[in-house]
Design a protein around this nucleic acid. Structure first.
Lengths: 288, 288
DNA sequence: AGCATGGTTCAAGCATATCGAACATTCGCT
DNA sequence: AGCGAATGTTCGATATGCTTGAACCATGCT
């Protein structure tokens, strides 16, 4: 089959409009170019140049072959660029697991950067809830996780943590619904980890388990029960009186969310880019 | 840069799931495969395989490289297929010049065939009028021309002609417009050849020159004058009484349109395909 | 332990791309 | 016309590098 090198020669000849010039550009001797062309014609099965005149010129079919061949050359350049990037610390994929309580805005705003063709890293985001975050992070050996109340336990060395903006949780219900601790139904988001049974945390009280925070908010708006929601989901509802704080001993709680990564794997450029989008600064990708 | 051959090796390894199997498929010895992989890794600048385990497996970056590299392989196969077709008598471009009097339907219906990716020939159609057809055919050294009243003159050997369906011309005008030879304005389509002055054929009578037959039909419908039109453009108008035949000695004329090609250049597969669309049968492309 | 499997290393041989020089051809200039 | 410059080709020599086969190492299975 036609080789990339042969196409490169044809391309140079077309741009330089001469075998000799092309040879010069390619840092080869004219006979080498002539040889390469002959090889290409052998492969193609038809003459690529019309040599009847003093200056060789492309045959129509030859030129068509070059036109199409340039696609191959572009593809080849693309691939080499990709290889160069992968070699200098860009991960092929960045897998991030996010706790669904957290605001998705900053995460979603990172997407355009990763859609840029000059960024080889593919971004994959999974949203999980509660224990499901850690579970997914471990099972899929993801690169980063954004979560609240993370305790590395004994192997504090195993993770590097970056602090994110604090996350306020508020205990709310629809005003006039009479939903409150003791008198109503508590709404909670179900743990997305398949092994964990939601009920195990119910503590004996009546609890309704919901699949995510958006369902939970909808249920709260409907006056189905009372429950905790992250503040960013309810500021609007509180302002418009669609939801109201519930009277309780503890009706507000602030978490310090973190993004965690395994200390054992080097921090790639894709991860660094992502972290920068989250407002984490001072991240230096480790050069491999 | 990474060569097509190296990618082919990586691809085989992935499909066969083993260096040894891949070597077998590629009809090479295992060490050759190992060598090629090492070369590829050298080029890439990072390890493509994880050799820590018994069986070598792709690194994430290595697999990503292969995924993208397969695009190159597809492109390469495409190009080789194109070369094979160009070598076996498919022209890179088929340039057809059509006289605007003729119905375009059969010509336009050929387009889908040439849009087929398995047909490498690009179809280019130019519409001209009167002498403009011959002129364009000669100037652009087109491959085929569809025209009426073609006389090869002395060098009847220089062209091969194929007959097309007869073309009836009718002399028409808007009914009640009073437009007729002697009493009205004759409408004629201007010769599209830039050198030819339309007036040279006017014969002293009053003649209005129009750019094409669709304009001419519109002018006739408006009652601007009388004139000849190909039947296929006016059957509907005649049926609905928007136009009517004009009283004259000769109010109808039938041409025998032909498609002509130079006998000196071999008939390509693209041309043969096009001719088949025109209903010309028994065309055999000359194998080059 | 022994063997099969999967991959690597190494030296040798062979193919092939490159080079340099000599040659043909055409164009342009004097 | 005649000469020189430029273009592309041919050809033998050379060197690079691909391929091979055999020996070698590691791992997993019986």
């Amino acid at each position: 089959m036609l080789s990339i090198d042969q196409l490169r020669v044809l391309d140079a000849i077309d741009r330089c409009a001469s075998f000799a010039e092309a040879a010069h550009e390619l840092h080869r001797v004219p006979s080498a170019v002539s040889y390469a062309v002959r090889q290409a014609e052998e492969e193609a099965g038809f003459p690529i140049f019309d040599r009847s005149a003093r200056k060789a010129s492309f045959t129509p079919a030859g030129y068509r072959l070059l036109e199409e061949g340039r696609r191959l050359l572009r593809e080849s350049a693309r691939l080499d660029a990709l290889a160069a990037q992968l070699a200098t610390g860009w991960e092929p994929e960045l897998h991030v697991v996010v706790d669904g309580v957290l605001p998705m805005g900053p995460v979603l705003r990172a997407y355009p950067s990763f859609a840029d063709p000059t960024v080889p890293t593919r971004l994959r985001v999974d949203v999980e809830y509660k224990q499901g975050v850690l579970r997914r992070f471990a099972d899929a050996s993801a690169d980063l996780m954004l979560l609240i109340g993370f305790d590395p336990g004994e192997d504090t060395e195993a993770f590097e943590l970056f602090e994110l903006a604090p996350l306020r949780m508020v205990l709310v219900a629809a005003p006039g619904s009479g939903q409150a601790p003791g008198t109503g139904l508590e709404l909670a988001v179900r743990d997305s980890s398949p092994g964990v049974d939601g009920r195990s945390f119910s503590g004996g009280r009546e609890v309704a388990w919901l699949p995510d925070f958006h369902s939970k908010r909808t249920a709260l708006l409907e006056g189905v029960g009372f429950g905790w929601l992250p503040e960013h989901l309810v500021t609007d509802d509180l302002a418009h009186g669609r939801l109201a704080p519930v009277e309780a001993e503890v009706a507000e709680w602030t978490y310090a969310p973190v993004v965690a990564r395994r200390a054992s794997v080097p921090l790639g450029k894709g991860a660094a880019l992502f972290l920068r989008h989250l407002g984490v600064d001072g991240v230096r990708p480790e050069v491999v």
